[in-house]
Design a protein around this nucleic acid. Sequence first.
DNA 1: AGACGCTTGTGACGCACGTCACACAGCTTG
DNA 2: CAAGCTGTGTGACGTGCGTCACAAGCGTCT
Lengths: 240, 240
Amino acid sequence: MLSPYGMEIVESCLTCKLRADRIFCDLPATALHAFESIKYATAYPQGAVLFVEGQLPRGIFVLCKGSVKLSINSPNGRTMIVKLAEPGEILGLSATISGKPYEVTAETIDPCQVNFVKRDDFLRFLKDDVEACFKVAEQLSDKYHTACQEVRSLGLSHSAAEKLANLLLEWSCKNGESAKAEPRLKLRLTHEEIAQMIGTSRETVTRLFAEMKRRQIVQSKGSTLLIRNTAALREIANHN
Amino acid sequence: MLSPYGMEIVESCLTCKLRADRIFCDLPATALHAFESIKYATAYPQGAVLFVEGQLPRGIFVLCKGSVKLSINSPNGRTMIVKLAEPGEILGLSATISGKPYEVTAETIDPCQVNFVKRDDFLRFLKDDVEACFKVAEQLSDKYHTACQEVRSLGLSHSAAEKLANLLLEWSCKNGESAKAEPRLKLRLTHEEIAQMIGTSRETVTRLFAEMKRRQIVQSKGSTLLIRNTAALREIANHN
DNA sequence: AGACGCTTGTGACGCACGTCACACAGCTTG
DNA sequence: CAAGCTGTGTGACGTGCGTCACAAGCGTCT
């Protein structure tokens, strides 16, 4: 079956091939059946907004495929990208649990497949299944952990260069390239968006990149970035 | 019974008078008994360190009485105060759940009574009791929520004045004074510590306070601060 | 082709704030 | 009462980076 956006929809969580390595998906069969009966499999095009910060929680969105940009916005129009969510993550989880408004805005950055579960159904599901409930606690711990990282990076570093270097290192870690001598990574974000991730201005980001290229620390061809001097990058990340 | 630090220890959670209004403490009797059997009631003096960020999680610390400073530190000696924990909060929760190192450092700022539970015991306890597990999820949601607030305040505001104003408003909210025309609040922290909470320097904090006093927005006698012009404070908090 | 939109690149300018340096005030301690 | 410590108040200085303004590269649409 093809979704409206030319993506194959995985009908059932029971037969999902993506399942094995996900935090939340690998539940025992009984729980999975229960989950199956309350979830709505849906698909979104690029640029769709799953929910907006401040809205009362309608439910959770389990991201199965694609990636989603989570951001925090101020009334004055300033915006800060908190993280890019990957498949397996549950979005809107903490708001759904606590009943408080969503604390971030979620927007797809490519076509996504998502399982939506209504709040009431989800809460009932959790109260019936310790294991699922525990998984949720694990997910929340994870979210809290990365939020702390965010706070650390925002609060403890005193230069934009430091934060940018940290971001690059983190990315090269996540895509498994970090082991190599010269990690390579695809920049899927514009300078503007990178700036929003580290809380600085677009111009500063392009200036920093220019500087790093001049110093032979990185090198770019098209949208891929080659880190030529990891040591120097780490140097920048950890101090000045 | 008097603890080493001149504080009455509440022997049992079952008879605890503080219990009713706590998130985690009001469990059904069976769960409470189970909890009772694995917890260690302990007391700490002012300035005690419950755990340090980076340590592997030994377990959780349920704060019953007193308050605890949670901070994030950088190797370069910079430090940022993330929040002041109040009774009822579970400290070290997310690390204990996930098994990752504690993400913050916890230090008592007055004599505290704490219930400690070893990690293994706690995990077993959770897996036996959906309700407790759900409470934990709620607590984690809460923690995540305030972490998001922190990120918002750090990332979206462009002046120290804005962050300070936000902090003062938040404090006056929390102690219930915010409804009054001229909220009053006790400053329990030094300028240095306030600076660490909003990620700026001590001098800037005292200069900002001086400025606000000059503009008749606040007024201080001893360690209590009187907010004379809430509107102006909000003005500062939301824009500039 | 040109027109339009989005992204990147770069110079000029200014200011908010970090840093250093020192004075003063209140407190505990011997 | 001097000595010492911790917290507050304030001036001088330098700078990182936000902001504005504009040019140039590149893809898409008509």
